[in-house]
């Protein structure tokens, strides 16, 4: 393919790769500039690491007084709130204090009292969204929002609009290899085949999603380095128990909407299986693949929502 455009850059704490078949270099550079700008705009608005972002302002002030936010941020928080309800609390953007506790006490003996205290103080129930004046307030002092399980999906939604503006028919976009957006098809086929890595046997994907114009998002409580080494991080905290997840688990969600895939994969990593089964009447069509590595060999559960 003579005009295969590919670029790679850092964004949102990871790397972003654009692969666009049959797209000339000059237009590709223009497109990349626009996409980078859009991602920076989103980071500047949603990242808790950017001191002046709207999310940082909310974290700083919302426990003292309602913080008025932009329509965009209000809608995002409303979406998060909706999916928190749909997933019965498994999707939760308020858990930062819990994560902080485990970061600060990685090996201390656990104080259940202290942990329970933090658990009571966090949770979406403490987040108040006032539609009338588009304000956000916390009724807990220690609440802190973290849109880490949302941002990449949201960025992919925005990127999709930009790709459409450029009349791009076929494209493959990856954020940190965990959030994928595809448009159209692989030049040699009539769709894209997205393989879900098998950490025990890297050459043999545990599953392949066959998609056109759709997204795949994977969440897991371990990381994988480029050389294929498994790095278990215990970085995911179960919002119901307050403890890090011990189980070695990965959940991939494939749907038309990147934000939906992103949210659901984040939530289903910690949700009990019953929550997944109960989802069917409230979910948009999607395919869910849950892979458990606890026994060594991957145990795969697949769910299809129609």
């Amino acid at each position: 393919m003579s005009n295969l455009y590919h670029t790679s850059f850092y964004a949102m704490g990871t790397r972003c790769n654009l692969v666009i078949p049959d797209f000339e270099e000059e237009l590709g550079e223009q497109l990349t500039g626009i996409i980078k700008n859009e991602i920076h705009r989103i980071e500047n608005s949603l990242s808790r690491f950017v001191p002046y972002s709207e999310i940082s302002q909310i974290n700083k002030n919302a426990s003292q007084e309602p913080v008025h936010v932009s329509p965009e941020v209000f809608e995002i928080l409303s979406t998060c709130s909706k999916y928190s309800r749909i997933t019965k609390g498994a999707f939760d953007i308020t858990l930062r204090p819990l994560y902080k506790y485990w970061e600060e006490h990685p090996s201390d003996p656990i104080s259940e009292t202290q942990l329970n205290h933090i658990l009571n103080e966090v949770g979406m129930k403490h987040l108040r969204l006032n539609q009338e004046d588009r304000s956000v307030s916390f009724d807990s002092r220690s609440l802190e929002l973290d849109l880490g399980g949302f941002g990449k999906g949201y960025a992919l939604e925005e990127i999709r609009t930009i790709l459409e503006d450029f009349s791009i028919k076929n494209a493959f976009i990856s954020f940190g290899e965990s959030s994928i957006l595809t448009k159209g098809e692989h030049p040699a086929g009539d769709h894209w085949k997205i393989g879900i890595n098998n950490y025990v046997n890297p050459g043999e994907p545990v599953h392949a999603f066959e998609i056109r114009d759709a997204s795949v998002s994977t969440s897991s409580n371990f990381y994988m380095s480029d050389d294929g080494t498994l790095v278990k991080h215990r970085h995911v905290i179960n919002p119901f128990t307050g403890h890090p997840m011990e189980s070695c688990l990965a959940v991939s969600v494939c749907s038309k909407a990147p934000v939906f895939s992103e949210i659901l994969s984040t939530a289903l990593l910690v949700a009990p299986d019953e929550t997944i089964e109960a989802l069917s009447d409230r979910s948009m069509p999607c395919e869910i693949v849950k892979v458990r590595y606890d026994s060594g060999e991957p145990e795969i559960s697949t769910y299809i929502m129609t």
């Binding site: 704490g13 980078k36 980071e43 990856s174 940190g176 692989h186 997205i194 994907p205 371990f222 990965a250």
Partner: peptide, 21 residues
Amino acid sequence: IFDTIPIGGATWVPAEPVAQG
């Protein structure tokens, strides 16, 4: 060649944090 892209997995994280690219 139309084959499966072995990609979906945990998020890749750089050794040193990156911000704004």
